[in-house]
């Protein structure tokens, strides 16, 4: 029943908290603990990366293998895939061709390193998709694209210097993934774009920027305010998210930069910190559903807080605030 729907509240009852936002803060922390990978899972993933690195450099001694994306930044949800890129040591783009793609595919097949191996040559970024036969983890390998590595380095430095960023990103990611709004191919919001939204929100928040509050002690109210900003108030038609050279958050008008303007004014624009001529979220065509989902999350969370505030302790027992917006499907952890 209710407990199995919200497994993170098992043995973690906060219904006696006086402030409802403290209850939500504690539930956010419980949820993140719950979905964070165990020591064995981390070991299995690291072992898999090591094995692939050794095998592939035995095929191509002048190749280097890097991880990027959520695995490299430690922002992955259970069951998410591992993104890797092969770069030649001389940085001469040697492996950026179809023959490398097919050579590696057959190498993975004959060595038994992967199942369901799918070389995708026609994509904008050619990749090989496959599944590790022992762990069942999905792996994507691309060739000679270094921007993912640069983005991962930036994200790691942002996570280290922005308390609360990791926690809010994990919640927003899980929220969007349940609604299938986190896949860029289908118009959703990608991982880097989510990180930019959360960082911008935290860096411009009047209480956070003045040091009046510690974000880690206020995750509950900050989560509701994140949904309030991007679900209700943000002026998507005219305003773009940007970061200066020091990584400070700012807004710029969309018409200040042609790269931020699309045919449709109602599009999210995030200026790429490494390349101002690129809009990170240009593939996010489905802003309408994303904004509606954020607004709905704001409503649900605020209403749950009002209900719980006006409820008796008996009525509060075993209740989840987060459970109204996040359903965790998957095997019991």
């Amino acid at each position: 029943e209710s407990n199995s729907k919200y497994p993170w509240i098992r043995n973690n009852d906060h219904s006696r908290q006086i402030e409802i936002s403290d209850w939500l803060t504690m539930e956010i922390k419980d949820f993140i603990n719950y979905i964070s990978p165990s020591a064995e899972e981390i070991q299995a993933r690291n072992g898999l990366v090591k094995k692939l690195r050794q095998s592939i450099t035995s095929l191509w001694p002048d190749a280097e293998l890097y991880c990027f994306g959520s695995f490299a930044t430690d922002l992955y949800l259970p069951g998410s895939d591992i993104d890797m890129v092969i770069v030649s040591k001389r940085r001469n783009g040697k492996y950026d061709n179809k023959s490398s793609l097919y050579q590696l595919s057959s190498f993975l097949r004959t060595r038994g390193l992967g199942v369901n191996i799918e070389p995708i040559a026609k994509a904008k970024v050619p990749i090989i998709k496959f599944v590790d036969p022992t762990t069942g983890i999905h792996i994507d390998i691309s060739f000679e694209r270094v921007n993912g590595i640069k983005a991962a380095e930036l994200i790691v430095s942002w996570i280290n210097e922005t308390p609360g960023l990791r926690e809010l990103v994990m919640i927003v990611k899980q929220f969007l993934s349940v609604r299938k709004l986190n896949v860029v191919h289908t118009g959703g919001l990608g991982g880097f774009a989510i990180i930019c939204l959360v960082r911008s929100f935290l860096k411009l928040h009047p209480r956070v920027v003045t040091g009046s509050i510690d974000p880690l002690a206020n995750l509950g109210v900050l989560l509701i305010e994140f949904f309030e900003l991007y679900g209700y108030n943000f002026g998507y038609d005219s305003t773009a998210i940007a970061f200066n050279d020091k990584g400070d958050a700012m807004y710029v008008t969309k018409h200040s930069n042609p790269a931020l303007q699309g045919r449709n004014p109602f599009l999210l624009a995030i200026q790429d910190p490494h390349d101002p001529s690129n809009n990170i979220s240009r593939g996010t065509h489905n802003l309408r559903d994303i904004k509606r989902a954020f607004g709905g999350a704001f409503e649900l969370l605020a209403n749950k807080c009002y209900d719980m505030y006006n409820a008796s302790y008996k009525e509060r027992l075993g209740q989840s605030i987060l459970g109204d917006i996040i359903k965790y499907k998957g095997k019991q952890r």
Binding site: P206, N233, S238, Y251, K254
Partner: peptide
């Protein structure tokens, strides 16, 4: 408290 002049931006008009 220091006035956060460089971090006050308008979500509506940018």
């Amino acid at each position: 408290f220091a006035y956060p002049g460089n971090a006050i931006y308008c979500y509506n008009c940018a």
